[in-house]
Amino acid sequence: MSPAKSDNSVPKSRLLEFYEQMLLVREAENRLSKLFADGEVPGFIHLSVGQEAVCVGVTSALKREDTLASNHRGHGHALSKGVELNSFFLEIMGKEEGICGGRGGSMHVADMSVGMLGANGIVGAGIPLAVGSALAHQVRENGAIAAAFFGDGALAEGVLHESFNLAALWKLPILFVCENNGWSEFSPTDRQFGANVRELAGVFGIPSDYVDGDDVLDVHDAASDLVTAIRAGEGPRVLECVTHRVRGHFEGDSQKYRAEDEMNSLSNHDPIAKLESVISKRRIPKKEVAAIREKIDAKINAAVEAGRAGNAPDFDRAQADVYTAVRGV
């Protein structure tokens, strides 16, 4: 991996904005990890620590009205697309006031008001949803595009291949984002998939790009170029972001299947550290960076407190939402 570029053309405000967003995702997940260990978050959580440059780099190239379908490692996608932090924590802590009423939890965070069509508990299943969403944008001619986030673990899912084909045939406005962290759950992806995502895209005539997914500036630039082409009606694009999964497949996974060397090298790829080095080279005062850290800490503390203060979901209300209440025909 090349070191992060210290491109002076990126405005300072942009650097700090990226920094703040990545830090929000990182610290939110660090806190979730602790809450999970302490028994305050039930179920399963899958953290994207180490992959923050992908969600922030891509969503910063999208607009609010663009839609996004995510996967089970989707906290970063949700937060960077604009899901409100308190309702995010309330959801993952299983509370009535959560964005999904405490019915979905970590694997199903969704917020239609910001175009976040949901994390997903089924590997690859969000991809055709994003294709359908792109179809809706195309038919409605609303100028919006869809994005599908998936890991390299989804590459062997048949529905991904079907989705590439359909999106290419119909020239749909969709950005496929592959977060390639090298691991398909507990197995190295080179033992799971016999091709690579860019070759696969090429087979369907879908242009693609490949970036260091730990460099938010590179991710943003590549995503922006692809999004421009998509908005111009040129059809789907694929962006492969090579990144690193620091935590296990889920919290509690001790990762005994990963080599010590690999684990020790992870800190060299940390996207937040990379951006910090850019910020430092630009001689941005340390107190500005510290102020961002304090701001994020305060927001997360407040969100955790909100989560703790939330109410247990009401069973009758949940049951009443299986179908839409309709009057007459």
Binding site: A69, P128, L129, V131, L135, A136, G158, V159, E162, L166
Partner: peptide, 21 residues
């Protein structure tokens, strides 16, 4: 007309239905 891709056909229908169609 779609390709013979039942999983993508129905998956796309769900996504389209969540996006205003």
């Amino acid at each position: 007309d779609t390709p013979i891709s039942e999983a993508a056909i129905v998956g796309a229908a769900v996504g389209a239905a969540m996006s205003g169609l």
